[in-house]
Design a protein around this nucleic acid. Sequence first.
RNA 1: GCGGCUAUAGUUCAGUGGCAGAACGCCGCUCUGUGGCAGCGGAUGUCGUGGGUUCGAACCCCACUAGCCGCCCCA
Length: 570
Amino acid sequence: MSDSKKTAPKPTIKAVRGTRDLLPDQTPLWNHVETTARAVFARYGFGEIRTPIFESTELFARGVGEETDIVSKEMFTWKDGERFDKDALRDWWLRKHSQRLGSWSTIDAPFALTIEVRDRPHEHEIVAFAGEISPALIATLVAFGAPSYVRQKDFDEWLAQDEPRDSSQINDQSRTIKAVKRLVVPTAVPDKGEEWLRDDLVVEFASENFTKSSQSLTLRPESTAGVVRAYIEHKLGETGNLQKLYYIGPQFRRERPQRGRYRQFWQIGAEVIGPQSSGAESPLRDAEVLEMLATLLDELGIRDWKLELNSVGSSEDRVRYNAALRDALQPVKHLMCEDNQRRADTNPLRVLDSKDEADQEIINNLPKIADYLSEDSAAHFEQVLAALEACGVKYHLNPRLVRGLDYYTRTTFEFTVTTGLGTQNAMLGGGRYDGLSEMLGGPRAPGIGFAIGEDRLILTLQAQAEADAAASGETVAAPKLDAYIAPLGITQNPAALALARELRAAGLKVEVGEGSFKIGKSFGFADALARHVILLGEDEAATGTYTVKTFTTGEQVKIPRAELAAKLQN
RNA sequence: GCGGCUAUAGUUCAGUGGCAGAACGCCGCUCUGUGGCAGCGGAUGUCGUGGGUUCGAACCCCACUAGCCGCCCCA
């Protein structure tokens, strides 16, 4: 015992910031939400689409918008397939020095090593000259001509600082060594001396790009862009039909985690998109989507949702409104808070979102988007409202509802709740995106969609359930298995498993105990897990009649094996 | 990304410079074919991680990590 305490414990690995595990006590609720969503979507004619979890970075830059916070600072982006292009570098170097090289230009020159700068994988620096990482060879090369670039001492120090402190860091070092071995640069030629080895070479080297086959990829921060990409890629518009697509899956944004805000979070979303001739642009679609969401939230038992609705107009409307806002803000912006002063110049729309109390009066007197809608946009919005009223879906017009993704046009909306989410009270958001397909290089394909924050939905449901439990004084019990089989001795174990197999085949939910447990302990396990306990001892094995106890009533009966399954159903 | 609060047993938390605790839960026994109740007994642990101050640190200081709250943004 004391020995094992002396060995240094390995550092534990925990779920990374903003991610979490959903354990079996959580997943039933998640599955319930997803099952309900699928059922509702199916009734409205939606089919499921599954798009990749990572996409080309370019997709989000163009779709979501380069200037949005999501794209500019919250994406998990990396270079994939980037390899050091030794040939390209050699060609470059030989070309650069062809005159001086003369006949040398065809030979294999010794190489200089470069390493990736730590934590900045796309920057390289030269550390030593060598074909292999051997101190002897390095020493030789240093003597030969390397000193103008790197000193032996620097290289030694660099190696030393990478000495692993414990086993968990070995991989890190191996990676670095591997990087060193991989990145090989021709820079020196035997017998030509160090005249070749000048600092300007390093500078020039650093400014050249010697990577190949790299592409920038990004974990999806939202799914609409990917769905529209798929719509374009598979030419779904060519069918002429309206496409109604839904998805359920994780999204990734590198934000500071908070309650209801995670770096990996789940969205349930849907998109209605198609060529104009399919009716994709019809206000009926907007209303249908909103009515469907109201139905879904009702069926899930979300009690206090509120639909906030606005129209931000077409992209042309928005340009005009932005200009009007900018003009209106110019004379008063110096009275506003720092954030709003900045927004007044960079993104006037966002001023409308401001919660700064002192600025509210100014904001309320700013031009209203409604006054800048084109006739088409205004008529479209009116028809959406009319259809909602016909369906009896309550909404609140919020002229200050401005959404942060660039692709939104016309109808925008948000469903908020008051339970369980604190200030992150937006549980769901969406809107129309009539120009998105074109932005992604596709055909004209107006659309409307939404994304539900599943994590937030679940938090709300849990908060509601807690409030109910507190009000009624009752606690919700986890559903129990139908039976627990308690073998009374290890010799009964095989028979217990055989019985379990039989009952499970009959559709019962069954757990099997272990014959080495004492009977009291078995009862404890059984009561925690199941509604009935089946005792399996020598008597039962001999007679084929089993003792079954029902925990809720305390009743205990003997049941022949053939009748067990039927009796346990109740 | 910014500001604030927090981190001690499986869980909820107490402990503000001097032997690391309570409750619940857990384990054992009373009790080897009837548990839950009861009685008795037991173990809970790198006090988030790493440094520093101190004779002495869970406690004071610094850094880091993570969570929560607010901002920002969004789902």
